[in-house]
Computed example of a mutant assay.
Amino acid sequence: MAAHTPTTTRSYYFPALGSYNTLTLQTTPLPPLKSTYVLVKVHAVSLQFRDVMIASNKYPRGGISENLVPCSDMAGEVVAVGSDVTRWKVGDRVCANFATEHWDGDVNDDIVKTALGGGQHGVLTEYKAFTALCLVKIPDHLSFEEASTLPCAALTAYNALMGPKPVKAGDTVLVLGTGGVSIFGLQFAVASGANVIATSSSDDKLEVAKKLGATHTINYNTTPNWDKEVLRLTEGRGVDHILEVGGPGTLEKSLASVRYAGYIHIIGSVSKNTPTLTSVIGQCTGKAIILRGILVGSVAQFESMNRLLRARPEPTRPVVDKVFSFEEAVAAYAYLESQKHVGKVVIRVSPVSE
């Protein structure tokens, strides 16, 4: 154990769900550290669209803890280790996996219940104890703010592109929008030698996508039939992989955009358009399309992803749009909800100098 282990922590929680404006600060005692656990000082937390859905009580999966401490993604520093822990030492820089018991292989119902900021209390707190098995070492070249974006957005994109049929050089990848998952998907695809087509409603955001290596960009406001433009850009073949974050509002066009036997990775449902899903089954069978649901990833995948980050540090450097202070947590939620961001929105819980 460390000599000056903290005994309390300040954290945000929801007294009731319905709006992120009800986020409330509390100070609670830290229980004695279990022998197989590690106490981490949280330096930075990144927000997901999931966090806004949970706050609004619109999360489809349910099973949310009462008086929830929100958020799933953190980066911090080990300040104490349990008596049976040999893998970690005080001072190590770590992230926790999204689902704390998803170590390797497929998910199951019990693993899903260990998702931080949902089935169990999350990481919008100054200190949190984690099981030693759910932690991964942060790549040395990343700041805490950058590393806080890895557990959900980055790993979701990595799991999509490096799954049963990994992206390879010369493939074409379509990313929808410029949120956290899409930007990481763009970066990982470029780092792997693939061509990327990126969509957005904003030309300014598409300029950022170009700077990150997108081969082609499409403004879906000025080109509403973007699926036809995707087919034109790929000479009628279609794309190999699609990171489908839009959901009902974009899936039909994704089905039209993907190549025969291509992969559509179902990740989210941020599109505000009205769904008109009339021919999903016909399109899937007619083109032998693989629809694959993505539920973040495992500790083993996280460590594999970090090897990619270390091997290609600059092309894969996390894109942090804006950093808010711990006291500005509500404003951070509002900014994420506005969808003005490119990449990730981060809350700095405690400066590194503290």
Rank of each mutant, 00 (worst) to 15 (best):
D203W: 13
D204N: 15
D204K: 15
L206C: 11
L206E: 12
E207T: 15
V208G: 09
V208T: 15
A209V: 14
K210S: 13
K210M: 13
K211W: 14
L212P: 13
A214H: 11
T217R: 08
I218Y: 02
I218T: 07
I218F: 06
I218D: 05
N219Y: 12
Y220N: 09
Y220G: 07
N221Q: 15
N221T: 15
T222S: 14
T223S: 11
P224R: 00
N225M: 12
N225A: 12
N225D: 15
W226K: 05
K228I: 00
E229R: 08
E229I: 07
E229N: 02
E229C: 01
L231G: 03
L231A: 09
L231K: 07
R232L: 08
T234V: 06
E235S: 15
G236K: 02
G236E: 03
G236T: 04
G238Q: 04
D240E: 10
H241K: 08
I242S: 00
I242Y: 06
L243T: 05
G246M: 05
G246T: 06
G246F: 02
G247L: 05
G247T: 06
P248S: 11
P248A: 13
P248T: 00
P248Y: 06
G249K: 06
G249S: 02
G249P: 03
G249R: 05
L251M: 03
K253R: 08
S254K: 05
L255G: 04
L255P: 01
A256K: 11
A256L: 12
S257D: 07
S257L: 07
V258T: 08
Y260P: 01
A261G: 13
A261N: 10
I264C: 00
I264K: 00
H265N: 03
I266Q: 11
I266R: 02
G268F: 01
S269I: 01
S269H: 07
V270D: 03
S271R: 02
K272P: 03
K272R: 15
N273I: 04
T274P: 06
T276V: 09
T276W: 01
T276F: 08
L277W: 07
T278M: 04
T278K: 09
S279H: 10
S279R: 14
I281N: 09
I281D: 09
I281G: 06
G282P: 06
Q283C: 05
K287H: 04
A288Q: 12
I290M: 12
L291E: 07
R292L: 03
R292G: 03
R292M: 13
R292N: 01
R292H: 10
G293L: 06
I294P: 03
L295C: 09
L295Q: 08
L295K: 00
L295P: 00
V296E: 02
S298T: 08
S298Y: 02
V299W: 02
A300W: 05
A300T: 12
A300F: 14
Q301G: 07
Q301D: 06
F302M: 13
F302Y: 11
F302G: 05
R307I: 09
L309M: 10
L309N: 05
A311Y: 13
R312F: 15
R312T: 14
R312E: 14
P313F: 10
P313H: 08
P313I: 13
P313S: 10
P315R: 09
P315G: 12
T316I: 04
T316K: 13
P318E: 06
P318S: 13
